[in-house]
Design a binder for these strands. Structure first.
Length: 405
RNA sequence: CGGGCUGUGGUAUAACGGUAUUACUCAUGGCUGGGGGUCAUGCAACCCGGGUUCAACUCCCGGCAGCCCGACCA
């Protein structure tokens, strides 16, 4: 798209109410807008990143047999009472509201209960299993204190998958498969080097140990000990306090074995080949999309701004037209690139070169194509890699080939 | 939820018991044109309520909001 038409604009100064790097850069670059503490809107550039992350996750979830659904934000309290999780004393971060008739209504903070309850309508035989459902859905959690920009918020988009298996072995097999899919996701969003599968305590509703995926970052709230660098394994300090050199990290995903607690609570069971009723083994698998986006910014940005990895960047190419004379050539390059299906942010604004460079570095699109007086003479385009600053001279066709590869 | 700090144009800030500074943004025009350039003109603000006072953005009380530390975090 043409940047002259983009309604957001960049800022030189950090907002005074943000301290975290992710919120400062994302706000300055025009990706997000804060509505309330811990409540952020996503602007065109930010939404593109979220959608890219969503698509990566969707591909990996589909690859392991996930079926996408979309469940509701408004939830029936009766469902939650069955597992004793409606009471504020048990789950204290509920947002709740009431119907016009005065009845209580829950506002989604997770979906174990409604998902399990819904499936009683469809699952009753061993032939119906295994089943893996997932969704991208907004969760609301009444955190006592929102903090760290988009890392810990009260309203956020989450991918939550739920697994339903016939046997514990079948469940474990899937659990490992999903762990593998998670590592692929984190690698694709550019965090592979720094992300570890981490043994953690399960929290209030799971007695078992669970697995978290932790990305090393000074902005993190957790501390992990790396147990095997080559296998990317670690253990959370909350499980095993060794002292010594823990590393700060951000929890970018988690997977939980639930056993049969939730399915049994709703009578979600199946009949095996012999007609016997059996319990279902359940698991849950979460990734917060906003937190993942914030983590990418925390880990990969530099002093000039954000550095998006290729697969999550809002555009593939940032085309900069530096002078009035270069405009015609830049227009042609823009048309050629988009006609080949390449997503281009075209800085066609009437501004000085310095400001365009600064904006491009702040916004962080991985490839910058710069058209100024140099290009008019050589007929070659200057291609600059945002991450390294390296430049090379290429023809438009070469750029297209490079991106298609 | 406990403790601390802070609320001034769209953004970031200054000063003051007598209605408000500067910069950026924005608008118009000039010079400029490869790393947020420059000159001129202009638009635009004191979180809300109460109190003290001749007079409150300023002091006091209450509220609301934001940030930080801690606790919490399926």
């Amino acid at each position: 798209m043409r940047q002259s038409e983009l309604f957001t604009k960049t800022r030189k100064e950090a907002p005074k109410d943000e301290v975290s790097k992710n919120a400062i850069l994302l706000t300055r670059a025009g990706f997000i807008h804060k509505e309330l503490a811990g409540v952020y809107s996503y602007l065109p550039l930010g939404l593109r990143v979220v959608k890219n992350i969503e698509n990566i996750i969707r591909e990996e979830m589909n690859a392991i047999g996930g079926q996408e659904v979309l469940m509701t934000t408004l939830q029936d309290p009766e469902i939650w009472k069955k597992t004793n999780r409606w009471d504020d004393k048990v789950v204290d971060n509920w947002f709740k509201t009431k119907l016009a008739n005065g009845n209580d209504l829950g506002i989604a903070n997770t979906h174990e209960e409604p998902m399990t309850a819904m499936l009683t309508e469809f699952v009753s035989s061993y032939k119906d299993l295994p089943l893996y459902t997932y969704q991208f859905q907004t969760k609301f959690r009444n955190e006592l204190r929102a903090k760290s920009g988009i890392m810990r918020v009260r309203e956020f988009l989450m991918k939550d998958m739920y697994s339903f298996n016939r046997t514990e072995d079948e469940f474990k097999e899937f659990y490992e498969k999903c762990a593998g899919a998670y590592l692929k996701i984190f690698a694709r969003v550019g965090l592979g080097e720094k992300t570890y599968r981490t043994v953690a305590a399960g929290g209030s509703f799971t007695t078992n140990l669970t697995d978290e995926f932790q990305t090393l970052s000074e902005a993190g709230e957790d501390i992990i000990y790396i147990t095997d660098e080559s296998k990317k394994m670690a253990v959370n300090k909350e499980v095993e306090d060794r002292g010594g050199e823990g590393r700060k990290s951000i929890e970018v995903g988690n997977i939980f074995p639930y056993g049969s607690k939730y399915p049994d609570a709703f009578g979600l069971q199946f009949q095996d080949e012999k007609g016997e009723k059996k319990s279902i083994f359940m698991g849950a698998y979460g990734i917060g999309l906003g937190r993942l986006m914030g983590t990418v910014v925390e880990v990969l940005s530099d002093e000039k701004g954000i550095v998006w990895p290729r697969e999550v960047a809002p555009f593939q190419v940032h085309l900069l037209s530096l002078t009035e004379e270069a405009k015609k050539l830049a227009d042609e390059a823009y048309q050629t690139l988009i006609s080949h299906g390449i997503e281009v942010l075209y800085d066609d604004r009437d501004m000085r070169a310095g400001e365009k460079f600064a904006d491009a570095d702040l916004i962080g699109i991985p490839m910058q194509v710069i058209i100024g007086t140099k290009a008019l003479v050589s007929k070659m385009l200057e291609v600059k890699e945002r991450a390294t600053g390296k430049t090379e001279e290429l023809k438009v066709e070469d750029i297209i080939n490079k991106l298609k590869r």
